[in-house]
Deep mutational scan, measured.
Amino acid sequence: VSFKITLTSDPRLPYKVLSVPESTPFTAVLKFAAEEFKVPAATSAIITNDGIGINPAQTAGNVFLKHGSELRII
């Protein structure tokens, strides 16, 4: 599955597209996205474009099915 993750704390709204296997734990996606944007993973969260928080204790495939591919990291 592929996710387009936007960094909301930067006024330029940079984004990265990450492709991972469906079975990947979403905690790993969060950690990798945080490292890519050089923000601390421990204090970061991934939310939907509607501002709904995503529980990272599920697979990337589940997140994709529930929330789609466009996400934000805060």
Rank of each mutant, 00 (worst) to 15 (best):
I74V: 07
S44K: 01
I52S: 10
P40L: 04
A57D: 12
A57N: 12
F3C: 01
G61Y: 09
S2A: 05
A28P: 01
N62W: 07
V63F: 03
I52L: 09
I5Q: 01
I52F: 09
T8Y: 10
I52G: 10
S44M: 13
S19C: 11
R72A: 08
F64H: 05
V29I: 12
A57K: 12
A34K: 06
I73H: 15
A33Y: 05
I74D: 15
S44H: 08
T43H: 11
F3Y: 02
A28L: 11
I73L: 14
L13F: 12
E70C: 10
I52C: 11
N49Y: 05
L30K: 15
H67K: 05
L65V: 11
P25F: 12
E70L: 06
K31F: 06
I54W: 00
A42V: 05
K16M: 09
L30F: 14
I47F: 10
A45N: 02
P21H: 13
K4Y: 04
S19I: 05
A41L: 06
K66G: 07
I54L: 02
A33N: 01
L7W: 08
S23N: 12
L71A: 02
T6K: 05
T59F: 05
Y15D: 07
E36W: 06
S2W: 03
K66M: 12
I54H: 00
A41D: 04
K38Y: 07
S19H: 11
D10P: 03
P56V: 12
F64A: 02
V20C: 10
T48W: 00
A33W: 02
I54T: 03
P40R: 04
V39R: 07
K38R: 13
E70V: 05
A33I: 06
A34Q: 09
F64D: 03
V1N: 01
P14F: 06
P21Y: 11
A28C: 11
T48N: 13
G61W: 09
Q58D: 13
V63D: 02
K31S: 10
A42R: 07
V1Y: 13
D10M: 07
V63I: 04
T48Q: 09
A60T: 03
S19T: 11
P40G: 04
F37V: 00
H67I: 02
T43Q: 15
S23T: 10
T59N: 12
A45C: 05
P21M: 13
F37Y: 04
G51K: 04
